[in-house]
Design a protein around this nucleic acid. Structure first.
Lengths: 115, 115
DNA sequence: GGCAAATATTCGTTTATACACATATAAGAA
DNA sequence: TTCTTATATGTGTATAAACGAATATTTGCC
């Protein structure tokens, strides 16, 4: 029973991790930070959204350990914690891409048949 | 401008894909289907939840193409569409694991210092 | 057609999320 | 201390998600 509970807790944590990835703005932030660290103002400009919104999304990512922050004076710079998150996103992206290509192919074949 | 819009749409799709992964029950289902195909009743038993709940989660996964279904009579068997989704989850899991190990290590060091 | 088994959907409710806007906090400079 | 810049948080609101319970749909069989 302990094993079952532990398994559930880990799955819950994993779901929580994935939740952080389930928003376009946060995905954008992660890919940006994969290039180089950014501070909040820079990210806000890149994203073209209000600053509080940027901070809130960063909080979601930070609380789950996907990013970490470093303060230099009044400026807080955010870094990507682990590149494997990007690797995982790239894998999902490629799976998604293939699936969409398949669907497009199917649509083409169907429309040819109906000519 | 088209490029920007397209990029946003892809990111939105990706977020949508990740949303499907942001629930413990759905993660459980995906890992189960990675072992072998299951029908709805079997999954319901495995999960220990009401059948409608299983169907609803399967719908979320199906609509995003993470799983596909095959009907044989009244029974509908679900399959994992692409193993890369599991690979991605495993990457996230390992990143999460390392982070937690790091934190545990930090806690140990702190408690040793306070003895 | 009528019935049974398997699966899907609808509805109502509860809970969670995202955002805009205003405001608070933190750090540095004058 | 006061002011300024950078970042974070509180509040209200609109939207969406999850779930239980009931019901509908699909298929096969008689």
């Amino acid at each position: 029973m302990v094993t079952q509970t532990l398994k559930q807790e880990i799955t819950q944590l994993e779901a929580d991790f994935c939740f952080a990835l389930s928003d376009p703005t946060r995905i954008f932030i992660l890919y940006a930070l994969n290039d180089k660290p950014f501070n909040v103002t820079e990210l806000t400009t890149e994203l073209g959204i209000p600053q509080p919104t940027t901070s809130r999304h960063l909080k979601v990512l930070r609380e789950r350990g996907l990013v970490y922050s470093e303060r230099q004076g009044t400026v807080i710079t955010y870094h990507l914690t682990d590149n494997r998150v990007i690797q995982a996103m790239d894998l999902l992206r490629s799976a998604m891409h293939d699936r969409m290509a398949q669907q497009a192919n199917l649509v083409n074949k169907l429309s040819q048949e109906n000519v």
